[in-house]
């Protein structure tokens, strides 16, 4: 897997997390794994299809997931119930959606599938390419981004960044 494929997910993760929790996260050290797996308690799995294919997995502790879900819901606290699960899935959807735009601008036109939420540690997702992993540190704890993507077709001409700033905001 090319290292350049994870950068859009890191950029998107930082931007979306900052937007939804109103605090800028910090990224940690990049690591390589032989397959996409997570040691985290809560993982959001999103498929990527198109010029690059594979999975993006966002893993975090139950405490972190619950705190982020509460922040997204503008609530001081909440249980990790169906609503919180839905919020965390939506977080993965927003990060992946932004990341695929950045990939498309780099010439890799791709789309995402709806998120699947997985609970449990040591979850391994079968992938045909090694995964790159990078942690993002927030005030609510760590979120680990696993990306396992491989090229499937011709890279298209790069396109200039699209004008999406008009509707980006800080209060999801």
């Amino acid at each position: 897997m090319k290292a350049e494929f994870i950068n859009p997910f890191v950029t998107a993760g930082l931007k979306v997390l900052e937007s939804v929790i109103s605090a800028r996260p910090e990224s940690g050290q990049l690591a390589v794994r032989s397959a996409a797996f997570t040691t985290q308690q809560v993982s959001i799995v999103i498929g990527v299809t198109g010029a690059v294919e594979g999975q993006a997995i966002y893993g975090m502790s139950l405490v972190t997931a619950t705190k982020i879900a509460a922040a997204m819901s503008s609530m001081p606290a909440m249980a990790f119930d169906e609503m919180a699960s839905s919020a965390i899935g939506e977080l993965g959807n927003m990060i992946s959606g932004h990341a695929t735009t950045l990939l498309s601008e780099a010439g890799y036109e791709c789309q995402i599938t709806p998120p699947t939420l997985v609970r449990g540690t040591e979850v391994e997702i079968a992938t045909s390419t090694p995964a790159l992993v990078i942690p993002l540190y927030t005030d609510f704890g760590k979120m680990e981004i696993n990306v396992a993507l491989m090229e499937t077709g011709e890279k298209t001409a790069t396109s200039p960044p699209r004008d999406t700033e008009k509707q980006e905001a800080s209060d999801a």
Partner: peptide, 9 residues
């Protein structure tokens, strides 16, 4: 109403 990044759609 969609996630940032689905501008093509």
């Amino acid at each position: 109403c969609t996630a940032l990044g689905q501008e093509r759609s």
